[in-house]
């Protein structure tokens, strides 16, 4: 390694000042080329993001100018007659990701507590490795599993049970055809669980055990020691984990598309099919022909992108505790100058 570093200096180690200057210039040239390369690579992503924002906003202009804000509140989606409203998809995305988050956050917290505190030592490591393996499973495989395993199981055992005991609720009305809001939310809940559990476990482990031991020393039970000595320190982080899971759930496309039923209708019943922002893109984008239809899909993509970006930023804010989007520091100096002048 050392020889490589100095080799050029060895080669040019003669006393002719002219040749030395020439070699030095060659070195400087290489240095500049490398710096230029680094700058070019580093600014690929920011440039592409600007292009992306431009692309999405210009391409959705036809729908924006035709429907305006009513695009968001119209529940009619009919490519044939040229009526487009995003409400069914907004509702479907909100409902399915909210429901899956509700399921996943409680199960995730319970599992994380069990794996760090309550379970016997020997079981922890294999289970944590299992969770890591599961988190590597791609979303299309989850969809496959949900389609052929989860839905038949729901159809056979869960839905009859729900209908018998909770059938009077508006959430469990109507016929169950398998593909439904319930199946979509469940598969997304299972998909976002591994990452939520891993992050929660890391957070619980990062709390110094002194606090817990102190509470123990005062004569608390095991649960009280966690409630008083651990949970208050990670409250904000837990909220961050939930929002992180929400971001994943909103952006999830393939598995949801396969099991949610793809029907642009708003129904309170969890047993009826629904549609989400990402699954309408997955289904219709490649087949759209009319200009208005394409533009409506671009507007949906813009909505989806904007929502996930906001959610992810919030998650970062809570998990790391520092502002990822520090406008005051980024642009503060210019503002000060402007104020002065």
């Amino acid at each position: 390694m050392g020889r490589m570093l100095f080799s050029s200096q060895h080669n040019t180690a003669n006393n002719d000042p002219f040749e030395r200057a020439l070699a030095n210039r060659g070195q400087k040239f290489k240095e500049n080329i490398f710096t230029l390369l680094v700058y070019c690579c580093a600014f690929t992503l920011p440039t592409l993001l600007v292009f992306a924002a431009y692309e999405l906003t210009t391409k959705c202009m036809p729908t924006v100018s035709k429907f305006g804000i009513s695009f968001l509140f119209n529940h009619d989606w009919n490519p044939v007659s040229g009526h487009f409203g995003a409400l069914p998809f907004l509702y479907g995305t909100a409902m399915s990701s909210g429901l899956s988050l509700l399921i996943a956050s409680f199960l995730g917290l319970g599992t994380a507590l069990f794996l760090t505190e309550f379970s016997p030592r020997w079981i922890q490591k294999p289970l944590i490795i299992l969770i890591q393996i599961i988190s590597a499973i791609p979303s299309v495989v989850w969809g496959l599993w949900a389609l052929f395993e989860l839905i038949p199981w729901l159809q056979k055992y869960v839905v009859p049970f729900l209908k018998d005991h909770l059938g009077f609720l508006p959430f469990f009305q109507g016929n169950f055809y398998g593909v439904s809001m319930l199946s979509g939310s469940l598969v997304v809940a299972i998909m976002i669980l591994p990452i939520m559990i891993s992050v929660t476990i890391e957070m619980i482990k990062s709390v110094p055990s002194i606090y817990k031991e102190a509470v123990f020393a005062l004569g608390s039970t095991h649960w009280e020691s966690i409630r008083i000595g651990v949970l208050p320190f990670i409250k904000k982080g837990l909220l961050g984990v939930a929002i992180l899971g929400l971001g994943r759930a909103i952006g999830e496309a393939m598995a949801v598309t396969m099991v949610i039923g793809n029907k642009p209708e708003i129904s309170l019943s969890l047993l009826s099919p629904a549609y989400t922002l990402s699954s309408v893109l997955a289904n219709e984008f490649a087949e759209s022909t009319s200009e208005l239809h394409i533009s409506a899909l671009y507007e949906i993509a813009l909505l989806l992108g904007a929502i996930t970006i906001v959610v992810n930023l919030l998650a970062q804010l809570f998990i790391h505790g520092l502002e990822p989007l520090d406008f005051t520091k980024l642009f503060g100096k210019e503002n000060q100058k402007k104020n002065l002048s």
Binding site: L49, G251, S278, A282, L304, N312
Partner: peptide, 16 residues
């Protein structure tokens, strides 16, 4: 700016 745009892109749904 570079770090932030990487984070943004990382959070963008893959379908977008």
């Amino acid at each position: 700016i570079v770090r932030f745009s990487a984070d943004l892109l990382n959070g963008t749904p893959s379908i977008v």
